[in-house]
């Protein structure tokens, strides 16, 4: 690991103050739990002049009830999310996904905001400085070409956060603040399909909270496939919410992670709903997944394996939810 760069730590007390600091200080970076940011900085992938430590901002640490849902502060830790009473009843999908993230010790400090903004991952990027250097770096950071898709012009590193697909299924919106003001957008519009520039945040813009809505009458589940049974990023992670029973499907929402440079909110599921759901339905579901995911050679596991897993797991997950 590299010696850490020479930075100063700034400790804002409010979200607004944090955004002001980010706008004044060039090359500053936000740090929440640091469980993604610190390893990246130690690998020489981040060289900030200032680190803005978000842990002292009280207003970002609570979960509050809203009309039909919750407002989850970006600095709420994964442990806090898993054990919160508000989550247990109507948002168990979020706890289920959060419990698969990293290890118990990481989850004491790792936050919801850090998970939503998690840097994209690639076998050619999450490496030491000397490893990347001897490989002539790559497009995402300091290099000229992409080793995954050498003819392409964009980075195909995979977004691998486990919470985003579950949050999307709950119709999540995100509250953002910058020196220019505050805005609220759909979570799915926070991302774009470019591994080197995956977040559509303005420079210095801060994620303050995530807003989720209740799913009345839905059955939900999160399935994650990974190389190791614990403490590992998803090869594929799928969140689903199903309204229906047996062979009747009224509504279906699916979110995927690990397959693209952004989390995927599966489009076109409405066409499969409103009647009986049989083999034709499953085939149509597989087709939607097949079309919208793009696993690449960014992981040690081959991309065709991840594609196959995504198809099989989405079929099985939706089938199980319908049956139960």
């Amino acid at each position: 690991m590299e010696v850490l760069p020479d930075f100063e730590i700034l400790c804002p007390n409010s979200a607004e103050e944090a955004a002001q600091m980010a706008s004044k200080k060039g090359e500053s970076r936000y740090m929440a739990g640091g469980t993604d940011f610190m390893p990246n900085m130690r690998r020489g992938l981040e060289k900030p002049k200032a680190v803005i430590d978000l842990s002292g901002i009280g207003e970002m640490q609570s979960i509050e009830k809203t009309g039909n849902g919750l407002r989850i502060g970006a600095s709420v830790t994964l442990q806090q999310l898993i054990s919160a009473d508000e989550i247990k009843s109507d948002f168990s999908l979020l706890a289920e996904a959060a419990e698969t993230i990293a290890g118990t010790t990481h989850r004491q400090t790792a936050t919801v905001g850090g998970n939503v903004c998690l840097d994209t991952r690639c076998q050619f990027y999450n490496q030491s400085e000397w490893w990347r250097k001897s490989n002539d770096y790559c497009l995402k950071y300091e290099g000229e070409i992409c080793h995954v898709a050498p003819t392409g012009k964009i980075c195909r590193a995979a977004f691998s956060g486990d919470l985003a697909p579950a949050l999307m299924v709950h119709g999540a919106k995100v509250e953002l603040t910058s020196a220019k003001g505050t805005r609220t957008i759909d979570l799915k519009d926070l991302y774009q399909e470019d591994g080197a520039d995956y977040l559509l945040l303005e420079p210095g813009e801060l994620l303050v909270a995530v807003l989720v809505e209740k799913l009345e009458g839905y059955k939900t589940a999160y399935r994650k496939v990974r190389v190791r049974g614990g403490v590992d990023f998803p090869l594929v992670g799928i969140a689903a919410a199903v309204k229906g029973n047996g062979t009747q499907l009224e509504d279906l929402r699916v979110g995927l992670t690990g397959t693209n440079s952004k989390p995927v909110s599966l489009e076109g599921t409405a066409d499969l709903c409103g009647g009986s759901f049989d083999e034709t339905g499953f085939k149509a579901l597989e087709k939607l997944v097949q079309k919208q995911i793009q696993p690449m050679r960014s992981t040690f596991s081959p991309s065709h394996y991840r594609r196959k897993v995504a198809l099989n797991v989405s079929r099985r997950l939706v089938g199980n939810l319908l049956e139960n």
């Binding site: 730590i9 640091g34 469980t35 610190m38 390893p39 680190v51 430590d53 842990s55 442990q79 118990t104 010790t105 990481h106 004491q108 400090t109």
Partner: peptide
């Protein structure tokens, strides 16, 4: 009282 990884923690925090 909570477990934390000292290699991912800045002393000043």
């Amino acid at each position: 009282d909570a477990p934390q990884l000292a290699c991912l923690t800045l002393a000043a925090t």
